[in-house]
Design a protein around this nucleic acid. Structure first.
Lengths: 151, 151
DNA sequence: ACAATCTCTACTAAGTCTATCGAGTTAACC
DNA sequence: GGTTAACTCGATAGACTTAGTAGAGATTGT
């Protein structure tokens, strides 16, 4: 399961992505827009900042902007930043592999094999969706085919 | 992440699947074979039994067997039994949908959309792997192609 | 009756999750 | 240079979950 914190992070980044180009938003605005408790959001934004996903300005006219273009922020990176590895088990993580405490042989473990498949399938999706893809407008009713994701 | 309990359940079922046809195993044997704390395993086996994944015999010569052929026990069902829905969010579950507390509109939520994709990809894998697939022998070195999974 | 086994409820220690608090730091503005 | 408004950061707390233990009860073979 995704944590509530990760869902908040995704909503906060989406809110930042919806700003006009060059504009910044203050914590209070983001909290309001993304429906996140303000003090909790502070923590989240700090985590995102450490990872470079957002950029902040301090002082009286301070605020936040995305650290990169929204189309360059993969959902996978957001989730990894907040919740850690995508895999269902540390031994099935490719970015942060760790052997199970009670595993006899990671190379032949059949559970690990299938969990790796699940991890790869999950990563395939989340590494190919960006924050920009979250703010695409709903499909117009007149269209028959959906617009392509991530041109 | 899968819980430790779910990993134990998978190992315990694997141990049962490795028995000779018709044989049963006692908790102590399974605990030993699957490397699960014995009292904890008792709870796990009860959960699996409620779901019909194992069958038990009480009394002096009691023990456990699989409730169905190993090839009919999907890993997805095992994991759902122990850890609950596969989805990364209750709102992205197809078997146990529940609206997010703070969701404005589940139909248009872009986070939910991508989480549904992840859930489907995960389910596709875990619903097509059975406990039987966990005990297939390692591929012989002489073969060039991998044997088919779940004939 | 006895022993061995599964059944079931309760409990606990440790950790995680979801926040909240408050003091500190930075920068604009008068 | 002081005030104000913003971000920074560590500590804390309550509720919940996880992983495991304890022990009494029920069932069955001998």
């Amino acid at each position: 399961m995704l944590s509530q914190k990760a869902r908040y992070a995704l909503r906060a980044l989406t809110a930042l992505a919806e700003l006009e180009p060059g504009a910044q938003a203050q914590i209070a605005e983001i909290a309001d827009e993304a429906r996140v408790p303000r003090k909790f959001l502070e923590q989240i934004l700090l985590d995102l900042k450490k990872r470079g996903l957002v950029h902040s300005t301090r002082g009286k006219l301070g605020g936040y902007t995305l650290g990169r273009p929204a189309s360059d922020i993969e959902l996978a990176e957001v989730i990894r930043t907040i919740d850690g590895p995508l895999a269902l088990s540390p031994c099935a993580s490719r970015m942060a592999y760790r052997k199970c405490d009670d595993c006899l042989d990671a190379d032949t473990c059949p559970i690990r094999k299938v969990l790796l498949e699940v991890r790869d399938a999950t990563a395939e999706i989340l590494e190919n969706r960006s924050v920009a893809s979250m703010i695409e407008k709903p499909v117009s009713r007149r269209r028959k085919t959906a617009p392509r994701k991530r041109g």
